[in-house]
Design a protein around this nucleic acid. Sequence first.
DNA 1: TTCAAAATATGAACAATGTTCATATTTTAT
DNA 2: ATAAAATATGAACATTGTTCATATTTTGAA
Lengths: 206, 206
Amino acid sequence: MFIFYNDVYVMNRKEIQEQRMKDYFIQATKEILKGEGIQALSVRSIAEKAGYSFATLYNYFKDVKELIFLCVKDFQQECQEYVEDKTKDLQRGEKKIIATAISYAEYFVQYPSVFEIFFIEKLPNSTENAKISELISSFLEKLCQEEFQYCIDKKSFTDEEIREIVKELNCLITGILLLYLNRNYPSDYGDFAKNLKSQIEKTMKK
Amino acid sequence: MFIFYNDVYVMNRKEIQEQRMKDYFIQATKEILKGEGIQALSVRSIAEKAGYSFATLYNYFKDVKELIFLCVKDFQQECQEYVEDKTKDLQRGEKKIIATAISYAEYFVQYPSVFEIFFIEKLPNSTENAKISELISSFLEKLCQEEFQYCIDKKSFTDEEIREIVKELNCLITGILLLYLNRNYPSDYGDFAKNLKSQIEKTMKK
DNA sequence: TTCAAAATATGAACAATGTTCATATTTTAT
DNA sequence: ATAAAATATGAACATTGTTCATATTTTGAA
């Protein structure tokens, strides 16, 4: 169909350029989400920040949802770095798990629009999106995995206990965040933080 | 300013008529939310179902959000009836609290758009909306209040324990629902129901 | 270097959204 | 019956995501 000097080379060049273009749009999307927030996010605002027309966006993404959810991995990376920095000096095991869970929640309080993308924004049904959902739902577990394994090895928890705890922590923190960010419950940040900590600690105590 | 035959009578008539009009729109909104769902909800679809022009809606509500959140009380009433019917024959106390919490969650699984209105749809900041947030955030507590009091009287729980449990149940169930409804986690309804039950039971065991 | 073809970027246009407003219609009270 | 007040309404607007024909740029061979 196409004639190339060197198939592989040309393909790579094309892909590199295409990825670069995608990255401009992804970067713009992330900046808007972290800055002005999701209510300022639109096809046109993204394209403007990226330095292209809104129509150009559609040459690289099938729709704006695809673009938005391509940010998930980057935000997870950033969140992971935030959490690791906050917990790096703590003693291993239970203490570190608690601190990890708290930092994880703090990240979303800092970037409510990232919480929206992760948990609220609707994902159209597709096998690709099922993977993204999975990535999001199991993210806290991933953050804690190493410490959980440490606890299992140390026999302070059984494998089964850990499985239950991580599920509960995940649901609990998601709910605490949703109520705080969307329903102003509790209305005071201090109360929120206190409640977050005490509920996480209680979950770990079984 | 205005001249009336009988001040009180005329005011009442006007108010009755106005409330009737509001109810037509509220009823239409509830029907769409429970039927086609929130993605089918628009100013125009509401007005069509109510039998009026979309512009008429703005003579009775300052915006569509006001109308949407006026449905909250009705949905809470309906949810309460659903829960009471599901739990009416159960023995009082802990068992009934657990069943109440499960039924509460089931109601939202049955009507995901009601969950959206309750927990996801953004409320513009106002003192009126703060009350609605409060109503939503404390709804599960209200549903369980009688049984909690029964437990306290029976001395199976202290006042302080109950306060902590209700807060935890509320956050936990909100999170379980959000992950299931929005992130398909877990993907199987049976797993969801099992997880819901086991986490509620664990929360009650302290 | 030149030029045709392929690739890419873009604005016009569309449908759907919430909202406002001037005006048409209906209701009210005398 | 009629003037005035109340109410209902469609036209219009701004904003949204998306599509598409076309303008522009890039590419590769002569």
